[in-house]
């Protein structure tokens, strides 16, 4: 979260990474994560082109509305995290902790609903080896869910002291996880 006249929390001496919100090493991680997710999403798209009927049948069995509600939960969590970062930089540590606690709670809701979704799919007989669609569905959404879990831990650690630089770094990871889901959602649940 950049702001005019507030560069106290920015690391310097990292060359081209100077000026990015949060610690530059977090951006190295974000870059590698986006590369990994990008390749997985490209693989999903290519598989869809090769087996359109399998993907249409698989996607039709998913609950797009539940996943849509989950998308709203994660987006709102990202909003809370962004407001938490603003509060931390304004020196309002208690406010920052409250915003971040809200973000973590919504992350937990996302994971809980993901668990409900997985339970429904496995009960319907849709497992990891049911079809190419479901293999990629479980791999991609499961890998993403692990990142949500890791993001919740990072947010909790940064909320402890609620220092501006740490909160900005933690929320940058959280927003990356949010960004990836915004693309995963239509690719898996909505495209026909």
């Amino acid at each position: 979260m950049a702001d005019v006249g507030d560069t106290a929390s920015r690391e310097e001496g990292w060359g081209v990474l100077d000026g990015l919100p949060g610690h530059p090493m977090m951006w190295v991680l974000i870059g590698s994560e986006l590369a990994a997710f990008g390749l997985m999403l490209a693989a999903l798209s290519v598989a869809r082109a090769v087996q359109p009927a399998v993907f249409a049948a698989g996607a039709a069995q998913l609950d797009a509305r539940l996943a849509g509600f989950n998308t709203l939960a994660l987006v709102t969590s990202g909003w809370f995290a962004a407001r938490g970062s603003i509060a931390a930089r304004a020196g309002r540590r208690r406010g920052a902790r409250l915003w971040l606690a809200g973000a973590i709670a919504l992350g937990a809701l996302f994971l809980a609903l993901k668990g409900v979704e997985y339970a429904a799919e496995t009960a319907a007989g849709n497992g990891l080896e049911t079809s190419t669609f479901f293999t990629l569905y479980y791999l991609l959404t499961g890998f993403h869910a692990l990142h949500v879990l890791l993001g919740m831990v990072i947010l909790a650690v940064t909320a402890w002291r609620a220092e501006a630089a740490a909160v900005e770094t933690g929320t940058a990871f959280w927003h990356m996880v949010d960004l990836v889901w915004l693309v995963v959602y239509p690719l898996i649940y909505l495209l026909r």
Binding site: M1, A2, D3, V4, G19, L20, P21, V75, G78, W79, A81, A82, S85, E168, T171, A172, H175, M176, D178, L179, L182, V183, Y185, P186, L187, L190, L191, R192
Partner: peptide, 27 residues
């Protein structure tokens, strides 16, 4: 329809990158 859905996803991603991630004011 897929194009519309993907266009919306791209717009959402761009909004998130600029204002949540804070890239609006960086290089």
């Amino acid at each position: 329809t897929n194009g519309l859905l993907l266009l919306a996803a791209a717009a959402k991603g761009r909004w998130l990158a600029l204002d949540f991630l804070g890239l609006r004011d960086v290089a």
